[in-house]
Design a binder for these strands. Structure first.
Lengths: 242, 242
DNA sequence: TATACTGAAATTGCAAGCAAAAAATACTGT
DNA sequence: ACAGTATTTTTTGCTTGCAATTTCAGTATA
């Protein structure tokens, strides 16, 4: 059976949004997308409706735009990620089949392989596939949908951070982070394999903290570019330049 | 601003599915719906895509059909309802505004009013509106989406049970159930209003047990219609008629 | 200079029609 | 009678085109 254009377009747009080729808040012009993707407007419109359901696109009046990053939403997103991730890992440890384990391991190895290369997008996609495979292993579509929404949201946020951030931390820092990520992935797989529910839960929490801390670091611990330019001090009630 | 046909069609189909006018597993014929709703196939197709995202419609090959009741899925659905409901009620107690409380109370009263009438559908819709209002009061769209999916699923299941079940329990049993439901709704509103998180959590659990037990009763405690017709006994290894 | 109006351009929403795939039916040979 | 195949019918997926709405530039006016 051949795949419908609407599905293909939805997947392409979805990838483009996650890769930030389509930027947050960018308007989606149906005619423009129609021409660039080589299909008529109808499948484009159908794909947009799906992406709205996924939370990657929002309506702005009659038009559609890529979902913006709402900083008021960030803590809510991470709350959802923590809770859904813990539940998914508990369920996966309980309900996984051998097939599930094979798929999880395959994606884990794909992530480890892509860690050598400098291709950040492929690495991030392998990471998404690894965690999605765990969601499948939970065998509960309600929890899986909840987890996927949070996962997609945080991954998009993370990519935006690293795409915009200057590379001040150097290669060494990334290597350390990847090494720890790989270590945690292996422990997670192991816990799910041995059906250790509590351990899977704890590891989910640790992995959440690792990924969240990394984004936090990029967002808030980078020295401001202004730091070297100006000396600011507080005099009286406001900021003053000196 | 006038509403798009696609949205209107999606809402009409959603109501039809929840009211069981469109039966589970029923095929959705685009041309037929197009004619009966007085719009062309394009908005019908767009509505179907939305309903698939909502979990009310599923693809069956190239066609679309109303989501069937999968009995393997039932325990998973109730797991999702319990967990999501508890979290939503905790969040609602924490984050509700005065506006939220007004909307919740309005829908609570609407439910109480409709309890006098014999209109089961209106009553069920007021009940859905009450619980959806609580989900809004949680102010977290990820958790709200999770809860809504479970809520819609269980409500559809409940309606199917009562639509198919003979009215053996009489008016008295229904009155008792409604009285208890109203009592719990009032306590839930009160807990959310006073921001008592633990109490809201406990009440969510109690309400879950009430609604689940009611469906259980209908599904499993009804005397089979065969009971009066045949005498069955176990002889040797199998069932035999006598 | 700011603001309200007007007409043109652009963009979305919907309908109709066509092509391809799937389903149903009729047919043929064993 | 029945399995397998050809043919017709039905249904979906997509393209195209048109109508309605929105957007925007230009103009006139306070």
């Amino acid at each position: 059976m051949i795949e419908r254009d609407g599905i293909k377009v939805a997947r392409r747009l979805r990838n483009s949004i996650l890769r930030l080729e389509l930027r947050p808040s960018q308007m989606l012009d149906e005619a423009e997308l129609s021409e660039s993707l080589g299909v008529s407007r109808t499948p484009i419109r159908e794909a947009i409706i799906q992406l709205i359901a996924d939370g990657l696109v929002v309506r702005d009046g009659r038009k559609a735009k890529v979902a913006p990053f709402d900083f008021d939403d960030m803590p809510k997103l991470y709350d959802a990620l923590l809770i859904s991730s813990r539940m998914i890992h508990r369920l996966a440890a309980e309900n996984r089949t051998q097939d599930d384990l094979d798929v999880i391991e395959g994606n884990m190895l794909r992530f480890e392989t892509s860690s050598d290369a400098s291709n950040g997008v492929e690495r991030s996609e392998a990471n998404l596939a690894f965690h999605t495979a765990i969601a499948e292993a939970a065998h509960n579509r309600y929890f899986a949908a909840f987890y996927n929404q949070a996962l997609i949201g945080t991954i998009r946020l993370a990519r935006a951070c690293f795409a915009n951030a200057p590379n001040t931390q150097g290669k060494g820092e990334l290597a350390v982070h990847l090494k720890e990520t790989i270590r945690q992935h292996r422990m997670i797989l192991s816990a799910i394999e041995s059906q250790d529910v509590e351990e899977a839960d704890n590891l989910a929490t640790l992995h959440y903290e690792l990924t969240k801390a990394r984004v936090q670091t990029i967002l808030f611990s980078q020295p401001s570019v202004f730091t070297g330019w100006l000396n600011l001090s507080i005099k009286g009630k406001g900021l003053e330049l000196s």
